[in-house]
Design a protein around this nucleic acid. Structure first.
Lengths: 140, 140
DNA sequence: GAAATTTTTGTAATAATTACAGAATTGTAT
DNA sequence: ATACAATTCTGTAATTATTACAAAAATTTC
């Protein structure tokens, strides 16, 4: 818990109880949760937490670069506390999202620059979709 | 107009007047329009077109692989009639979306397969974000 | 310890998307 | 051509993620 607090401070985020709990949840759950999932999970611990606070906090985390916002589904935004360069794979069947570590991701910036030039790239998002191992296995 | 009709038929889509108009719009406007933008643009031509038809049709096009659905913004889905392998760049400032042709995109499937294996990849989506040439130029 | 600032909360508003059921259109068989 | 069946289209209403806003609570500053 102390670690999370320092992590927030180091990124210029005042570590309130709510913020620590939310950040901690994101750091310990690599499931790319939606706002609703986070809200439900934190409810026992923080019964007074409001959705507005959750939205505000996640926006703050995003602005301070400690959280990614993923627009994998068209309806709900998902959040990711892992800000290392990596791609995502979402299964069409079960909907689960998997991390794919990919050191070569930053190199893709050059491919884009080479094609267009003149522009400044701040982020890259690489999303795969298909059928995951366990859903594929359930076919037989 | 005849071309679009054949294109739809070739993909197993019955070419109604609405469908032709919508597909035609997507093929001639590479701006990655939202549902609202398509609706407004087609209104003079098809005053009775309903939003529901538009949603249903775009879903159909997506299922039949003649249209991409882009989840670049978290709120609105955007649509793209260009199904050739390409990436997208969205400007943080003006919001415009640019195509980045990229033949090497299918190769990225192998990178993912190599890391995880066992899974089936159906689509790849690569999104860049940053500042476009003209917005960058307006700084001075 | 009081005032000022920041954070949190709850409610209400907004807006994209979907559900649904009837109307219109199109295709098919006699 | 006509009748019937299937498909497509339409408008309205419901759903739901997100945002706006203003007051309450907590924290910081002096």
């Amino acid at each position: 818990m102390l670690k999370t607090q320092e992590y927030l401070s180091a990124h210029g985020i005042r570590p309130s109880a709510q913020r620590i709990a939310i950040m901690n949840y994101l750091l310990t759950h690599k499931t790319h949760p939606t706002v609703d999932e986070i809200y439900t999970a934190l409810h026992p611990e923080l019964p007074t937490l409001s959705k507005t606070t959750l939205y505000n906090t996640l926006k703050l985390f995003y602005d301070k670069n400690v959280t990614l916002m993923l627009t994998l589904d068209e309806r709900q935004t998902r959040f990711d506390g892992n800000v290392e360069p990596h791609a995502h794979f979402q299964c069409n069947v079960c909907g689960k999202v998997f991390d794919i570590m990919m050191e070569e991701l930053p190199e893709l910036k050059n491919v884009c620059k080479h094609k267009i030039g003149e522009l400044t790239i701040s982020t890259i998002e690489l999303n795969y979709r298909g059928e995951c191992a366990s859903c594929r296995g359930e076919k037989n």
